[in-house]
Simulated assay, not measured.
Amino acid sequence: MMEPPRLTPFCTLHVQLGPLREMGPGRAGQRRIIPITGGRVTGRIEGAILNLGADWQTIFADGAADIDTRYAMETEDGALIEIVNKGVRHGPPEMMERLARGEAVDPADYYFRTTARLESGDPRYRWVNHLILVGRGARGASGVEMHLFAVE
């Protein structure tokens, strides 16, 4: 029998968000775009989240959010790394309503999980192209804190 994969802390994303843009109803639910305007990456890789990219969300009838982000960071030594992070955020209706109002909600009171892939053409960081990462997040009033773990 094969041992299950281990999770190793990889980095923390401190993502700053711009004002939410409502797109209206889509095929599967309410659509919205949330600009990614900056932030920091700390951990095994370090650097600044760039002011580009967005979270293209679908909000389902039960209040669950389908997370679909694409953005980029610049490492402290000048390499560019793309971040694609997809997942789901859901919880009891009262918790999701509090999050929507920008209130502080304990991350233990809702489910916010993602899978992430990184990509870089910089020779110093090509190793990130081969990682599978999983994340656990917390939504704040103006940003997201996402802890990524490498699947070993």
Rank of each mutant, 00 (worst) to 15 (best):
R6W: 11
N85E: 13
W127H: 10
M96E: 08
R44N: 04
G26Y: 14
Q16M: 04
R124K: 15
G18N: 02
A72L: 08
R32N: 12
V105K: 05
P9N: 10
Y110C: 06
N51Y: 04
R32I: 01
E103N: 09
T114K: 05
G38W: 02
L20M: 14
I83S: 01
R21Q: 14
I83W: 08
A28W: 15
L7F: 15
L99K: 07
P107T: 01
R27L: 13
P93Y: 03
F112M: 04
R117L: 07
H147W: 07
G78R: 05
G78T: 03
R98H: 09
V84F: 07
C11T: 12
A79G: 00
G53S: 04
F10S: 01
L99G: 05
P5I: 05
E97T: 11
T114W: 06
G140I: 02
I132N: 04
A100K: 08
F10M: 04
P25Y: 14
E97P: 03
A28G: 06
I33L: 13
P93D: 00
E94L: 13
L13H: 02
E76I: 12
G78K: 02
N129P: 12
V88M: 13
R113A: 07
A100M: 02
L7H: 11
G29A: 05
A64L: 06
G140L: 07
I34E: 06
P4M: 11
T114Q: 03
A100E: 11
S142C: 09
T58H: 03
A65Q: 13
E76C: 11
D66N: 12
I36Q: 07
L133V: 11
V88K: 13
A61K: 05
A141I: 00
G47S: 04
E145L: 15
M73G: 08
E82C: 03
H130C: 05
G137E: 10
D106H: 06
R32D: 00
L13V: 02
P9R: 08
E46L: 05
R124T: 06
D55Y: 06
R136P: 06
Y71A: 06
